[in-house]
Amino acid sequence: MTPAEEWSRRLDRSLIELGVEPAEARRLTEDSHEEARGAGADPSELYGPAAAYAVRLAQAVRTPQPRLSTMPAGEVVLRLSGVSKRYGRHTVFDNVSLTLRAGEVAAVVGANGCGKSTLLKICCGTTAPSGGVVERTARIGYAPQQGGVSGFLTPAEHFRLFGAVHGMGRRKAVSTGNQLCRRLGWRPRSGLSAARLSGGTQQKLNVVLSELNSPDLILLDEPYQGFDQDSYLDFWDQVLKWRDAGAGVLVVTHLLQDLERVDHLVELHRSEDQ
């Protein structure tokens, strides 16, 4: 095998791993190979290392996000007014307010133990606030930090289950799920249960399940833990795509990078016992 063929083989494999359809991967690989021959250059010289080039090509061919939300832009999808949470005499947080509209991203930041996840649970409706008012749109997606997937089920089985909740047909649910996975650079293999996926891939499944129903509001609790660097960037890319597609997004995070891109910042501070 010549170095050029070796490079092409690696490109093809990397593209498929990144979620590009095999037929499209083959076409891109053949084109790249031919193009390099036409330019009279070695592909690794013209394009750089195959794996790195694959990442850029995969990003370029990823299908654009269809419009998510059915809501007109600017409609309020979540409103917190003076929300507080106390356990006994201990105040977790006090007087949190936020107005999140369709097409906006809000980040909830703060150190561990300052109630970020509690605030998200209040938005989900599983925890009652001690004070204040929560108003929220009905069609939501939710990705918990952990436990949001079943280790015994394959990705396709997850899609069918969540699809059933959202009144989608089985086939539609699976094809939508697979398409969303490819956008996160992952191509689910059938027959592999979630417990056998890597931590980062499980989280991708977790994220995809939260957007299966094209919700108006997506609530995410640090769902990128275990993502590698590229997927982490893809995750924020995805958050911005949701926003552009018209959904409201609330992300809980303890990382302070990438926050210049969000529309609202909710900072929680660890409060002293009173």
Binding site: L28, S32, E35, L46, Y47, R56, L57, Q59, A60, V61
Partner: peptide
């Protein structure tokens, strides 16, 4: 401009239906 930057841009334009290709 390196090929690793140029060609993905051309692929993206093709995907967006703005550019067509011919061998």
């Amino acid at each position: 401009i390196p090929g690793g930057t140029l060609y993905p841009s051309l692929v993206r334009l093709e995907k967006q239906g703005l550019v067509e290709t011919d061998w």
